[in-house]
Amino acid sequence: MNKTKFRQFVEFLLKNNLVIVPQYNVEGYLHLAELKNPKDLYLGTELPLDSWKWYLIPPFQKMFDYKNDQFKEILPKVGKQIFLGVSILDLQALTLLNQVFEQDPYYQEIKKKTIVIGTSHVPKENFYKYFAKFEEDKLEHLQFDIFLAVQKNGYKIYSGSEDGQRLLDKFKYKNYQHIEYAGPIREEGLDQQMVSVMDGMQNFHEQKIWDDLGKRCMQCGKCTIACPVCFCFRMYDQSNLEKDSGYRSRCWDTCFYNEFTQVAGPAPAAPKHRLMNTTSQKIYFWYEHHFVRTPASFSLPGCVGCGRCTRTCPADIDIFQTQRDILKARQRKK
């Protein structure tokens, strides 16, 4: 698809849909927002500060309304939305979220109305080397509807779902190739980098790494908000002003907060018991989720190497450096 055709394609998408894209805001930050003017669309190697999860697992989500003792399911009311310009790294993140929330009616309600259009752009600085070079056979392990592989004078187009095919057909574009999703595991087996970091954390534990991080981290939780694959949530009830009515909802949570592992409470007199009490325990738990638990449960990397956490961290904690430290400790102890 050459550049002129692509411009027409964007205009075609804008005609009937809400299109969310990376674009610069007035302060000069690249972030995600609804595309109003095709000129504002940014397609390039820089990643937006915020991640696509905002639009799939909203920070706050109503689950049920209640009146007296009766609960009524409230599914999110969203229209059709198109994510345009999802970096291949973020596609990897979305592929994971799709697995995690496979049985979740709230996620699925939004997902089924969402068209994901990926691109082969990857940030220049990226510890997760796998996507540094784009190859077509990497696509069959990612979930997307349409994919734009960057070429000299435009994009090579792939479809990854029937929804994607239908959309391209409607635009009367024929020159695309279909890729069938083949599950998370690649022909060459599990991602080697994923396996080594996991092995390092599980079998070559080095307490010093975590004690040092524990001294620097201030438990602000920003990294969990920035990360495209952090999805912890907490559920709570909120009553309305009107008597005996209200809602049950969920909102993002972060494992850096004290209440995260607290049992019994919150009455002032209740005994409080927490499983994680120190900062190093918490930051270890965070890394463990990304580098151990997710690969073990889904055979997918729990960190896509986007570097958003490093960019946001006020304590300058660099996840790529920590990965290098884990790998170094593994080398040393092996």
Binding site: V100, F101, D104, F231, C232, F233, R234, M235, D253, C255, F260, T261, F285, E288, H289, V292, R293, A296, S297
Partner: peptide, 10 residues
């Protein structure tokens, strides 16, 4: 097994 509050190891 989604919300992560009760996770230990894998």
């Amino acid at each position: 097994g989604v919300c992560q509050h009760c996770a230990i190891g894998t």
